[in-house]
Design a binder for these strands. Structure first.
Length: 310
DNA sequence: CGTTGATGTCCAC
DNA sequence: TGGACCTCAACGC
């Protein structure tokens, strides 16, 4: 579920509803009891995402670092402020609603407000294994299934960030960041398909964005980094910035630029229509009709069109 | 109702 | 390189 766009959306949601007031921080599951006790009662001053990492800074200077791993998720309850223009902008007229979001899958699930009677009472009882609950008087965020959840000091945060490549959604100077990515790709003998997944090369790309970026560039994922022209890497970086911004806006990975408004709406409603090649092994390439290939690359599934991507 | 696999990363061998 | 982590939807029977 979580490629970079998801984590940036979570940062926006946490920022909208949990930054500011004193928070009750707990670990209903118990596995984060010590960390929760350290944060309990503090205000969150700031939250931001870098790549797939989420950082929440508290007034003591403690920073909560969360990585969702393969199947982590946040559930929000209570006041949930709309975060994105269009459907509903931060600070727009859109009224906050009682609902639940960000539950598994590429899609954000908005469950009926009364599902399972969860919202009959507020705050709702934790469901299942909740590693951390952040609760204000009006909003609750529950974290489940993360691969990382820990309290760091600012120096430790900096060390984590320093190990990450650029993230276009947390970088002011896109061109300078692009130069870093060009250097980190064009000097390596490793396949470009592997390098795009390497968070120390460029941050936030996961298996779907990897496959789709390479298709959009018509680039063979197996090409060694040093065999990819610098301007092609530069274009990949700019395309990543575009796709990431779209993903943060849409709450979904929709990479097809061939769709009209109606087609986009259909694709947002149906994962099977969203991608050029990801998840389409054996199905005809949407451009040339050649069956899409899937093969293993560094223990992950790699999808590509053997005709278009040469 | 049991099995499988997934948008990720780390660690031991 | 393979397993562990830890969760749940999708699928098969």
């Amino acid at each position: 579920m979580p490629e970079g766009h998801t984590v940036h959306r979570i940062a926006l949601q946490v920022g909208a509803d949990l930054v500011g007031p004193p928070l009750a921080v707990s670990s209903p599951q118990g596995r984060f009891a010590a960390g929760a006790a350290r944060l309990d009662g503090q205000r969150m001053l700031e939250v931001h995402a870098v790549g797939k990492q989420l950082f929440c800074t508290f007034e003591s200077g403690d920073v909560l670092r969360v990585h969702l791993g393969l199947y982590g998720a946040w559930d929000f309850y209570g006041r949930i402020t709309p975060i994105v223009d269009g459907q509903a902008a931060v600070g727009s007229m859109g009224a906050p609603r009682l609902r639940r979001v960000l539950r598994m899958g590429e899609d954000e699930r908005e469950a009926p407000a009364d599902e399972g009677g969860l919202l009959a009472h507020f705050p709702p009882d934790p469901v299942g294994q909740v590693r951390v609950r952040l609760a204000s008087a009006e909003s609750v965020a529950d974290l489940r299934g993360p691969s990382a959840c820990e309290v760091l000091d600012p120096q430790e945060v900096q060390a984590v960030v320093d190990r990450l490549g650029p993230d276009p959604a947390s970088t002011e100077d896109l061109e300078a960041a692009g130069a870093v990515v060009v250097d980190r790709i064009t000097t390596r003998g490793v396949a470009v398909g592997q390098l795009l997944m390497d968070q120390s090369v460029v941050a936030g790309i996961g298996n779907i964005y990897r496959a789709e970026l390479l298709f959009r560039a018509r680039l063979d994922p197996r090409t060694p980094g040093r065999a990819v022209p610098g301007d092609v890497v530069r274009a990949l970086w700019r395309d990543w910035a575009t796709l990431l911004a779209d993903g943060i806006r849409d709450g979904a990975i929709l990479t097809r630029e061939d769709l009209d408004a109606e087609g986009r709406a259909a694709a947002l409603a149906d994962t099977a229509l969203r991608h050029w090649v990801y998840g389409r092994a054996g199905l005809p390439c949407r451009v040339c009709g050649t069956p899409v290939v899937v093969e293993d690359m560094a223990a992950r599934k790699l999808y590509f069109c053997p005709h278009c991507q040469r």
